[in-house]
Every structure is written in structure tokens, then in C-alpha cells.
Simulated assay, not measured.
Amino acid sequence: MPAVRLSDVAQDAGVSLATASRVLNGSTRVPGKAVAEKVEASALKLGYVPNAQAQALARSRSGLIGLVVHDIVDPYFATIAREVQQQVFASQSQVLFTQTDREIDTEIRALRSLIAQQVDALVLVGSHRYGNDSDAALTALLEGFARNGGRVVGMGQSLGVGRTIVPDNAAAAHELATALIVGGHRRFAVVQGIAGIPSAGDRTGGFIAALTEAGIEPELSIEVGLTRDGGHVLAQQIQEHLAAAPDDPVGESLPLCVFAPADVMALGALGELRRLGIDVPGQVAVAGFGGVPDADDANPTLTTIALPLHEMARQAVDWVLEQPDEGSAIGPEGSEGGAAHEAADTSPEGSAEETPSEVHVRGDVLLRESTALAASD
């Protein structure tokens, strides 16, 4: 059977082709309710399926949202990506997803591809400044997309373009370290020196600042990758350290408390410490950062900073879908945006590039089994 055309629907409903298009392709110029219902009924009866390209032209939007994360295996990114997907799908839009493995060249290629697919917005989750010459290329790409009506939303490190939800990493890590000290911990190991990941540096910096204020020096400083495998390496280096210096240097039979600046690393360390036969929290205590759901199910349950991941994702989608005359729930007033369908050196009529803005969020300290100290006699 030949494919059902829009003209067939228009003829069956007794309306013009333009009217049928406005109803079925999502134009803002929708006719009256009775006419719209007649067109929709004809489309259902004939089995007509709207053309996506025609819908994009009618709406001046593609209904596509580009989502960029570092590593979908990491439960931090997986939690946010799932919430973004659910919120976007509920709005009748779709997500085009890519991961970058924290490689800036991969990220730039991915962004170019998403923009070529005429996405309406880009949502970038994680640190997206790598401290090298390619940062300028990334900035230029995002600025050009925004100039042409696309929306840019970041979650993590400030992008300098569009809107960004920024966790107060240093302050939260400082609060976590303080809580551990108040709880009785005096021996600490920290993960630092993760190149190109400012958020991790901020977290470790805030943690060490609290130790310094309490007159405590980290017993051990380790450089490993911000991944589950990095957590395995972290546990192995902890084992080597304990074997080389088994005595408690503070003379209080306290465990060594390890701070990993990401839950995925802390969870990897927990698993490897168990495999190595090291008691957690008896010999080694472990704290993470992020508040991923997996931390609740770990054995022992993981002490962490719980960021409002679901709320952050919902706010990002609210910004993406915000109409030109709507205000933001927690951020500045919205400005007009739309699909970036024009050439890089021209701005579509009526578009307006947003002034870069940030909204800061705080996490909650969750002290759990992984840092519990044995009760003293």
C-alpha cells in the first residue's frame, strides 16, 4: 500500500494542507479545538505518521536534546542521565546521548555531531575544561551554538556559556572532613593530583583545608584515576602502605580514613579492600563524594556527600525546555532560545544569547558504616 500522505489526511478531514500541517507538526499556530480534533481523528483512521523534519520546520525546533557525560558506567553520570532522559521524554522530546571518557578531542567531535543533528540544546555533565589549548575550541563551539539560538546547560564545572549548576565541592568536602574529625578520626589518606578534573581538585582541596585547620597532616597522598579501576589501585596502594607501616602513628588504634573525591572510586576501593582481606571500617575507613544510589547498597554502606542529583537533572531539563517568557525555578530569568539551525556566522531572527549564569548547590554529609569507629571501652 502507498504511504499515507499529509494531503490525504487534509482531504479526509476537509481542511487545507496548511491547517493539517499546523495540527500534526506541532506549530504554535494551531486552529480551533474542533478542527484540531477532526484532523487528529483522520490521521488516526488513516494511520498517518508525521514526518520529523516537517515537525522541526513547523516548530522551529527539532525536539532533540544532546546529552554529554564522561562515563555512563559511573553511577554518578548514569543517575543524572536516566533522570534527564525521563524528564525529556515526558516532554515529548528525545535525548541524543554520548560519552567522552574525559577526552577533549572526543568531546569536541561529539558536540559537532550533535549540533549537526540540529539539537535544540546541549546538556554537559561533569568537568569540561581540561587545562589545555583545546579548551578554546570547546568554548568557541559552545558560544557559536548559543549565538544561533541553541541552549547550553552544564552540570558541574562552569562552562562560561549558558547556565550551569555548580556543586560547592570544596565547601562540602570541608564539611565532610570536619564531621569525620569530630567523629574521632585522626589518620587520613587523600586522593589528589587528578589532572584536568577541577571538581576533584576542589573536593580534595576542601578536605585537606579542614585537616589543616585541625592540625592534621594527611598520612598518605595518592594519585589514581577517577574511576572504579582507580579505586582498585587506591586500595592496593593502601595495602602496601599498611604493610610498610602497620603501627598506628597516633597510638590510638585508629583506622586509616581514605577520602576518594568520587563515589565510583570509593566503591571500587571498598570492593578491592574486601578482596584483599582488609577490614572496613576496622582497619581502613572509606569516604566518597556524590551520593550515588549504589552507596546505599554498598557493604558496608558508604559515607559520602550526597548531592541532589535528581533535582540537578530536573533543573537542567527545566532550563532546556523553558519557554522564552518563563522564569527559571532556581536560576535567573530565561531568555529566548531555540534550535541552532543557522550557519555559524548568522543569528536567527528573534534569538538572543543568554548571559552566562550559575546556580550553586550544596550536598549533605552522610556518615555511614564505612567510616564508623569501634566504640571505646
Results as ranks from 00 to 15, higher is better:
P198S: 13
V224S: 02
E219P: 07
T212E: 15
V224H: 06
E219C: 08
A214K: 11
A243F: 05
R203Q: 11
M265Q: 14
G205L: 08
P218R: 00
E213V: 08
T212F: 02
A214V: 06
A244V: 14
G201N: 14
D202S: 11
F259N: 02
R186Y: 00
V264L: 08
Q236G: 09
D248A: 07
E223D: 05
A214S: 10
A243P: 01
E217H: 09
R228N: 07
P246M: 12
V250Q: 12
T227Y: 07
H232G: 07
G205V: 09
G196D: 07
I222D: 00
L242H: 09
E219S: 12
Q237A: 10
E240N: 11
L254H: 04
P198N: 13
S221N: 00
V224Q: 05
P255N: 13
V224K: 06
S199D: 12
L226V: 13
E223W: 03
P198K: 14
R186T: 02
G206P: 06
D229C: 03
I197C: 03
R228P: 01
T227H: 08
V250S: 12
Q192G: 12
G231F: 11
F207Q: 05
G230R: 11
I238F: 01
G201F: 07
A214D: 04
E213M: 07
I222G: 00
E213T: 10
G193M: 04
A243E: 15
H232A: 07
R186C: 03
Q237E: 14
G231D: 04
P255Y: 07
L220H: 02
A245M: 14
V191F: 06
L211R: 03
Q192V: 11
A195Q: 13
V224A: 04
A245H: 15
C257W: 01
A214C: 02
L220P: 01
P255W: 07
E217C: 03
G251Y: 05
F188H: 05
G206S: 12
G193A: 04
R203M: 08
E252W: 10
L234Y: 04
R186L: 08
A210G: 06
P261T: 05
L256D: 01
S253R: 11
R203G: 08
G230Q: 08
G231N: 12
V258P: 02
A214P: 02
A200Y: 14
F207A: 07
I216Q: 02
A209W: 05
F259D: 00
